[in-house]
Design a binder for these strands. Structure first.
Length: 861
RNA sequence: GGGUGCUUAGCUCAGUGGUAGAGCGCCUCGUUUACACCGAGGAUGUCGGGGGUUCGAAACCCUCAGCGCCCA
């Protein structure tokens, strides 16, 4: 049992212990899940980071919380699977490799598709996945044997399987629709890949028509007028009613276009008449479709004007915007201009290029039935969102979801499993099916989120019903930031429920917030306030970073983080280190059973009672995803109860030699505490625990269980009294200017239950038990303290202290009296509250009497 | 424009009906054989404004103001 026991270095140095411990855990295979075990499964899949990414502070938080849960459940005896992996990140990765090619003066087209994709795989092998090594530094107890990638063998099977299944259920279709087009990435984007931000643009009112057939329309994008198919007004707008059904001249293009009436037009906006450019605006597309209006596409895929039949063809869209306005001005058609005009414009989330709405033939997922099922799962309580406050956001999204454009004009990704025949045949093939000769596969790839939506089961081997699928699906909880609720979580819900016969991929969605800077401001490269978790781990250790993050992780809310907070967590780790050294030094041990409860002193009983309460609270809080509060409870138990009080009060016991019970109790408390802390601070607790107990590893140790027999309110009350007495004496000494280290003759005159602990208190208070004549004395409750200050005491300081105490007591008394003399209170307040206030009345009255007497006894100075 | 959240000590935040809390920071003292990455003591709040419900409100309701986020 004791072969592993080691001496602890005098100071805690994270860098020396972390890496060897992680290697030890891996070598022992602690993190590898066994799909044949009889243990109850507990599964979490890591939100797959981009293969291009490195560990940022948000990952550190997300992964810490997951590791806390996984480690706790492992200690509770579950068969835990924490599955790591990465996302192929279509656009992001393709951009990285294209940039690399560009530096060599090449484009992907120089290589051709096959060569380019090969290049991306090469890039992945060489430079991708930096984050995986960084996850090891954080101490993540993931099952590396199951490391997954969205484009690995499992992904390659799962994607066409579900595509075909959705297609056959009429939930995937191909259609010409307005999509978000990035003129730089040259691909369609889904709604969520577009970020809206306010931009200073212009708002130009232009007169269409000639003579008495004129109408003025306003637009922020004048260049698109070349593709106008109509002018629309509200059907009830009296200004334009007479013009509906007539035609008007479209300037520049010199075409006649109809004036139509549509409810979609807001008569109070601008002039109440709008241009209808069906091919370049989603609202206009709707109207144009409804009214059978023509929708000419007047830009090419690069955003250059084309096929408008005007002099503007060949101009970039932003150049054309100016040129069009200039020409309109020359013709006297600009009625008014507002510039700058602040309005919201969509940008590509990958490259920030202004998105161009564009009519285009794409593949879509018909989300309505899938989203309905995803919403119902939460509505019917089969899936819980923690915290519940975030449910409305979830519903807001799933209940108003647009069809999802899933085709991307990229090369890196899952190619769409659709083949087109020579005579227009469309063939959707599963993973093991082959297209007949002469058929050509759709060149597009699928949106990255399409494959990551399958993550909770594709990583387990689905569509094969593998042992892993049987054992570990559905997963146990999804832990992620609320910011990807819509990107990823909703999609996993839809796909999981659809693919797995209605079984949602997880019963709980535990959402956390974002990590912000010390002032609560969002981190961004442009602000220069980003935090690098790796630097913090270098400086303070992985445990300190983990604890700092977990300690501030309140459900669903953002947290601020500053370097000092991490430093403070490192200090806490050091505190624990030294407390353990102290315990070992004094012979604390875990040998044999705990001594009979009755044989223990009240201080030992008290710490056992507090430990038991702490275990209950921490366990309950962690099970409720209340990480911040759990850490807080641990922190205060360890630092306040254990270090500041129990160790101090036990020093006299250790010095006296009669300390067998205390040694065993301290050993027990430390053993349990280290276990309780292990999920949050795995490295230091492992190092301390193995040194202290000689055990193999905390990773596979048993999670503490609160012992109800240890709850001892009587001892808690007694120790609280001891604490009050000690604090009062300290205050007195402090007010009298007596240094902490200075020994002072003194004694307690106290009832037996307290007198029993006088030596312990005297030790803490540096009181000497010698014969003396008291020069100062005061009372705390039933206890009288006498001290010899060998000189006159500072009466002014003492009077000030007592006067302040008296004022506090009098205020408390008054509060209690007011309540008790209030008829309404007496009649309606619950019994226990009334009793409590009455007790307060008694104690504060006694305090006042005592303090007053002491004040009166002070010599007049 | 729609939705949603926040406003509590200098800073960052807990606290959902019964005497206002934590961490950090601040002030004073201190080289106590676990720990100065520490210890002891101390100061600090009309809980955003106004109104209401209640015996009792930081908490529940209404309203105003400011800030934030999501969506359009």
């Amino acid at each position: 049992m004791s072969q592993n026991k080691r001496e602890l270095a005098p100071t805690f140095s994270p860098a020396d212990i972390e890496s060897p411990l992680y290697e030890k855990w891996i070598a022992a295979g602690y993190f590898t899940a066994d799909n044949t075990s009889g243990k109850e499964p507990y599964t979490i899949v890591i939100p797959p980071p981009n293969v291009t990414g490195s560990l940022h502070i948000g990952h550190a938080l997300d992964h810490t919380l997951q590791d806390v849960l996984i480690r706790m459940k492992r200690m509770k005896g579950f068969e835990t699977l924490w599955l790591p992996g990465m996302d192929h990140a279509g656009i992001a990765t393709q951009n990285v490799v294209e940039k690399q090619l560009a530096s060599e003066g090449k484009s992907r087209h120089d290589l051709g598709r096959e060569e380019f994709v090969k290049k991306v795989w090469e890039w992945k092998a060489e430079s991708g996945g930096a984050i995986l090594g960084q996850m090891r530094r954080l101490g993540e107890s993931v099952d590396w044997s199951r490391e997954a990638f969205t484009m690995d063998a499992n992904g390659i099977k799962a994607v066409p399987t579900i595509f075909k299944k959705l297609y056959e259920a009429d939930l995937i279709y191909r259609a010409e629709r307005i999509i978000n087009w990035c003129t730089r990435c040259l691909t369609a984007l889904s709604d969520i890949e577009v970020e809206h931000s306010d931009v200073e643009g212009e708002f130009v009112s232009v007169r269409y028509g000639e003579g008495d057939q004129q109408i003025t329309v306003a637009t922020t994008r004048p260049e698109t007028m070349l593709g106008d198919g109509a002018v629309a007004v509200h059907p009830d707008d009296p200004r334009y009613k007479h013009m509906v059904g007539t035609q008007v001249l479209l300037p520049l293009a010199n075409r006649m276009i109809p004036i139509i009436a549509d409810e979609l037009v807001d008569p109070d906006f601008g002039t109440g008449a709008v241009k209808v450019t069906g091919a370049h605006d989603p609202n206009d597309f709707e109207m144009a479709t409804r009214h059978g209006i023509e929708m000419p596409i007047i830009m090419d895929e690069h955003g250059v004007m084309a096929n408008s039949g005007t002099q503007f063809d060949g101009m970039d869209r932003f150049v054309a915007r100016k040129a069009v306005v200039a020409e309109l001005k020359a013709q006297g058609r600009v009625v008014s201009e507002k510039r700058p005009y602040l309005h919201s414009v969509g940008h590509c989330s990958r490259c920030d290029t202004t998105v161009e709405p564009r009519l285009s033939l794409q593949w879509f997922v018909r989300v309505a039935p899938l989203a309905k099922a995803a919403g119902d799962a939460v509505r019917e309580g089969r899936v819980k969102i923690e915290p519940k406050e975030l449910e409305p956001r979830y519903f807001d999204w799933v209940d108003n979801m647009h069809d999802w454009c899933i085709s991307r004009q990229l090369w890196w990704g899952h190619q769409i499993p659709v083949w087109y025949g020579p005579n227009g045949e469309v063939l959707v093939l599963g993973p093991d099916e082959k297209a007949p000769t002469g058929y050509v596969q759709d060149p597009d790839v699928l949106d990255t989120w399409f494959s990551s939506a399958l993550w909770p089961f594709s990583t387990l081997g689905w569509p094969e019903i593998t042992a892993d699928v049987k054992k570990f699906y559905p997963t146990s909880v999804l832990v992620t930031g609320y910011d990807i609720l819509f990107f990823w979580v909703v999609r996993m819900m839809m796909m999981g429920i659809f693919a797995m016969d209605g079984v949602a991929p997880f019963p709980v969605i535990a959402l956390h917030g974002l990590v912000r800077d010390r002032f609560g401001k969002k981190m961004s490269k442009s602000r220069g306030n980003t935090i690098d978790p790796l630097e913090f781990m270098d400086r303070y250790g992985a445990d300190a970073l983990r604890f700092a993050l977990a300690q501030k992780a309140n459900p669903g809310t953002d947290q601020a983080l500053a370097e000092e907070w991490v430093g403070a967590s490192r200090n806490f780790a050091t505190k624990l280190w030294n407390a353990t050294r102290f315990a070992i030094m004094n012979g604390a041990n875990v040998e044999g059973e705990l001594p009979a409860h009755d044989s223990l002193n009240a201080i030992d009983k008290w710490i056992l009672s507090r430990l038991s309460e702490t275990i209950s609270e921490v366990d309950h809080l962690l099970e409720s995803y209340e990480f911040a509060r759990a850490c807080d409870v641990i922190y205060h138990f360890a630092w306040d109860d254990l270090c500041d009080w129990y160790l101090e009060l036990s020093k006299e016991t250790f010095a006296s030699g009669n300390s067998e019970g205390t040694k065993r109790v301290l050993g027990y408390v430390l053993d349990q505490l280290l276990k309780l802390m292990h999920p949050v601070m795995p490295f230091i607790t492992e190092e301390l625990w193995t040194s202290f107990t000689g055990g193999e590893s905390l990773v596979i140790s048993q999670w503490p269980v609160a012992d109800a027999a240890h709850i001892d309110k009587k001892s808690e009350k007694l120790v609280t009294e001891l604490q009050t007495i000690i604090t009062e004496v300290r205050r007195f000494r402090n007010d009298q200017g007596i240094k902490t280290t200075q020994k002072v003759p003194g004694r307690f005159i106290a009832p037996t239950d307290i007198a029993q602990y006088a030596p312990a208190m005297a030790f803490v208070l540096k009181m000497e038990s010698v014969d003396f004549t008291a020069s100062a004395s005061f009372e705390i409750g039933l206890v009288k303290v006498e001290l010899d200050l060998t000189g006159t005491i500072d009466i002014g300081a003492e009077r000030a202290r007592l006067t302040k105490d008296l004022a506090t007591a009098q205020k408390d008394l008054q509060t209690a009296q007011v309540k008790l003399s209030n008829e309404g209170f007496m009649a309606k307040a619950p019994e226990n509250v009334v009793v409590e206030i009455k007790e307060r009345l008694v104690t504060t009255s006694a305090d006042i009497e005592r303090i007053s007497a002491q004040l009166a006894a002070l010599p007049q100075s």
